[in-house]
Design a protein around this nucleic acid. Structure first.
Lengths: 334, 334
DNA sequence: TTGAAAGCGCTAACAA
DNA sequence: TTGTTAGCGCTTTCAA
């Protein structure tokens, strides 16, 4: 049995196409009596408007494309809940596109697909290729919002956190206590811009007239627990710091475990602080002090912001900065 | 500047619509010379075929809807990588829909959206409402594959793991060693059917002519670490078992940590085994023995299977059973 | 308040 | 090998 179309409804209800269209789009001009009649037929025929046809007619798809590299997956997946829920509430379809790790001209290919599908807008995430991605959406003038970094551009929105402030405050706090052996560990790919995080540290050192040596105080690591753990076991064989700040809980746990295995007591001999407040930080023993970011909300906010841009709604700002909370648990002395 | 349409290309290239259409769809009948000419214009005008228009004409959207309850998010998110990558390789769009936790008539609403968007097919996950969901897709005759449970139905595909065998083998092994105080812990919502997991245990007990008491040997828990941890700290105050089998690593870690806090040594006093082989099992101390399931692959396989069904390709079976590996680490005596 | 009709951008017979 | 033409199912003027 074929799906009922608007024609079928019109015929059965004895009205024109236009009237049915008005009814399903909630136009106010249609008489109550007619409306009821049409609704009844819609129900009887189990008619569901074809969004594809509508899309063709209106040149809108009510679809938002979410683009992210697989390597950022750990961060993105936690946001998908918020993105999905907001999409549902606001009646937008969310379609996801992964880049890299597979295929060849990754970003171009993906953008090509997004353009073909005529998504109304896209959501991007801070990553090492973000500049190139932003170029692309601008070139094709696709409305977009990027999560994880502030971007000041008329055509783009952004949802971000004040990364510099996060590290500045923490580092400043330790320096004030005379604890100035602080290192920063992070994988290359990160939702929160590592340059900003590092910048915040630098500033704090500067304000205390202390030297900050990026070569030794910033350590790159892997996103795979086993690799980072192994790396840190080695590192802590002959290093010990006042504070290790990790940009993601998982790496924070690797630090803690590696330290413990080198008989460095956390937090007594060395303090550890991480970011994101995921389950990892709870599971860790001692439990990890961490920065809580409103991950779910950031996803939902990005969708909300994007739809506002799409609907040309008034908005005070296209750059929305979200708050965060320092959560002190057992890996720091508080 | 408006986007170029197939008309623009036809006009510029001095050919008809049909020819352009043939070129972009890779039809073999078009002369090489003409093809080149058309391609050139396509490039110049930066023409991107409108998939919406194509969808209307062909009655196909090349999109797959992935539907899952938020409560199953922890499992699903790990699969999204595989689903996304497979979608990209096979040139299908993946759109995600979350159910429950928000809104009212959850599943009906979602299905309504899926129908409106005319997704070619859907991917479902085992969860406590799966029967109802299967009913719905069948009622609307939407091609579907479900992940996490075997379903024998002509119109549906499934990608699953032999859950009964997993628990049977493990439990059987312990019973043979005379260790028969075994409990099973799991949250309500699970990707792998808990009834099957429990059934496997029962069978093993049966084969050993030993009683299995579901009331005491099966423990429900929360998906939130803090809650399950608290619950287990209480439980282990006056319980100790030969083996605790948890259906997900996170709950396994909660068991381990709660046991340790009650001075129960793992694995000497009590062994713990979990499922999924996520980072949690690595982070746990002692590291968790766990069942490795090919999560990424299951996602990719589901997409592959669904597209085969959509394209009416020949397939030996619609019920694909994937393998698994027992990974023994430090939470069990091996 | 309703209807007629054109058009959205493409595909797919069918004819040439 | 190419072109003509009729849809696909909806929205949206414009007129009534």
């Amino acid at each position: 049995m074929k799906k009922a179309t608007i024609y079928d409804v019109a015929r059965e209800a004895g009205v024109s196409l236009a009237t049915v269209s008005r009814v399903i789009n909630g136009s106010s001009v249609v008489r109550e009596k007619t409306k009821e009649k049409v609704m009844k037929v819609i129900d009887e025929l189990n008619f569901k408007p074809n969004q594809i046809a509508r899309g063709l007619a209106t040149n809108k798809t009510t679809t938002i494309a979410v683009i992210f590299p697989q390597s950022l997956f750990a961060h993105v997946k936690d946001m998908i809940g918020g993105i999905g829920d907001a999409g549902r509430t606001l009646d937008y379809n969310i379609t996801i596109y992964t880049t890299d790790d597979i295929g060849n001209g990754p970003m171009d290919d993906v953008m090509e697909k997004v353009i073909r599908t005529r998504a109304d807008g896209v959501i991007l995430f801070n990553n090492d290729k973000i500049t190139q991605q932003i170029e692309l959406v601008k070139k094709h003038s696709i409305p977009a919002v990027v999560i994880g970094m502030q971007v000041s551009d008329d055509s783009l929105g952004s949802v971000y956190v004040d990364a510099q402030k996060i590290t500045y405050d923490i580092v400043n706090n330790y320096l004030e206590k005379g604890k100035n052996d602080i290192i920063f560990v992070s994988p290359q790919q990160n939702l929160i811009r590592t340059v900003d995080l590092i910048e915040g540290m630098k500033k704090a050192y500067q304000d205390h007239q202390l030297p900050f040596d990026e070569a030794t105080q910033v350590i790159d690591t892997s996103t795979h627990y086993e690799e980072s753990y192994t790396q840190f076991v080695e590192h802590f064989r002959n290093h010990k710091h006042d504070l290790v700040f990790a940009s993601y809980d998982k790496e924070g746990v690797a630090v803690v475990n590696a330290a413990i295995d080198n008989n460095i007591s956390v937090p007594d001999d060395m303090e550890v602080m991480a970011m994101m407040d995921t389950s990892y930080s709870l599971i860790c023993r001692p439990s990890l002090s961490t920065i809580h970011l409103p991950i779910y909300d950031m996803g939902a906010l990005a969708v909300r912001l994007l739809t506002k841009i799409l609907n040309q709604e008034e908005l005070e700002t296209k750059e929305v900065c979200v708050g965060y909370t320092n959560i002190y648990r057992k890996s720091t002395i508080q």
